[in-house]
């Protein structure tokens, strides 16, 4: 059973070596394209067009950023994006937690029906109803407004169920005793449940922030006027030259990569928090009825 300890040791380290190499290759595959983008974005127009593997800016220059931000006015879609993301995320978190709170009350009449109604919406991908959604937005006069983008995905069954699962971990006796003291349901929600659920709120807020920031299909469907473009839409016409939205302009690599960097920065800023709450969110979401 003991075998030869020395031989065993050797085999382990050989395995560890291969394993480490595999992961190293993986890391390089993931990270080199990103470094490449970063390096080119900080190069001058001319050097960004020259051949060669670029992992460091050839001649440190912010001309790409200047051009994309000011000349091409990426600041406008950027701030549209900020607006839609902030309002959309705040409303999403509030509505999802409100619904989640309501659904923890065991005596609520019709709770089962409401839960199944919410779960059915999770089975219907927004893409599959894009045509009627377009028509609904048109009929409500929402086409070509930023409001249509805030409304798209304003509530999701996933967030509601996640918040409900989080609230279920708060002892229900707290709600009951507050009720005895004459507190209204909304007050209990605001004063008892919300403060005790900061990690849960943070989780859906971060998820929602990321998906809002990246929201593309609704913008593609509903937005026409360039001054209402969101970041992803503007980026699309920047990187795909034969796209219908672009006027056939030619953009140097450093300009395109600067645009990509600008779209990535807010996501990179919140990334440490996303990492912190990600697993928690998954575990909550996976808890079944």
């Amino acid at each position: 059973m003991q075998g030869s300890p020395k031989k065993y040791q050797k085999r382990v380290s050989y395995f560890q070596l291969c394993n480490g190499l595999f992961l190293l290759v993986l890391i390089l595959v993931m990270i080199i394209p990103l470094i490449n983008v970063w390096a080119v974005s900080f190069s001058s127009g001319i050097s960004s067009m020259e051949p060669g593997v670029k992992l460091w800016p050839a001649d440190f220059s912010v001309s790409g950023y200047q051009r994309v931000w000011q000349t091409l006015e990426l600041w406008r879609p950027f701030f549209n994006n900020v607006l839609v993301t902030v309002i959309g995320t705040a409303a999403h978190v509030l509505l999802a937690s409100m619904a989640g709170y309501v659904l923890i009350h065991p005596k609520l009449v019709g709770r089962k029906i409401i839960v199944s109604m919410i779960m059915i919406t999770m089975m219907v991908p927004a893409e599959a109803i894009m045509i009627p959604l377009y028509i609904v937005n048109k009929e409500l006069g929402l086409l070509d407004t930023l409001a249509s983008l805030v409304i798209s995905g304003l509530i999701s069954g996933f967030s509601i169920l996640l918040m409900r699962n989080y609230f279920l971990s708060v002892p229900y006796s707290l709600a009951e005793s507050a009720q005895m003291d004459g507190a209204s349901d909304f007050k209990i929600f605001r004063k008892v449940y919300m403060p005790m659920s900061v990690p849960g709120l943070a989780t859906i807020m971060l998820f929602e922030f990321v998906s809002r920031w990246n929201q593309f299909t609704p913008a593609l469907l509903y937005i026409n006027s360039p001054e209402k473009y969101t970041l992803q839409l503007a980026l699309m016409s920047l990187i795909v030259p034969d796209d219908a939205t672009s006027s056939g302009d030619f953009f140097a690599n450093n300009v395109q990569m600067a645009g990509i960097m600008i779209a990535m920065i807010p996501l990179l800023v919140i990334y440490p928090f996303v990492q912190k709450y990600f697993i928690r969110g998954i575990n909550l979401g996976a808890t079944k009825e």
Partner: peptide, 8 residues
């Protein structure tokens, strides 16, 4: 990369 949109 999972954080980034498909446009990025």
């Amino acid at each position: 990369p999972h954080l980034f949109s498909w446009v990025i």
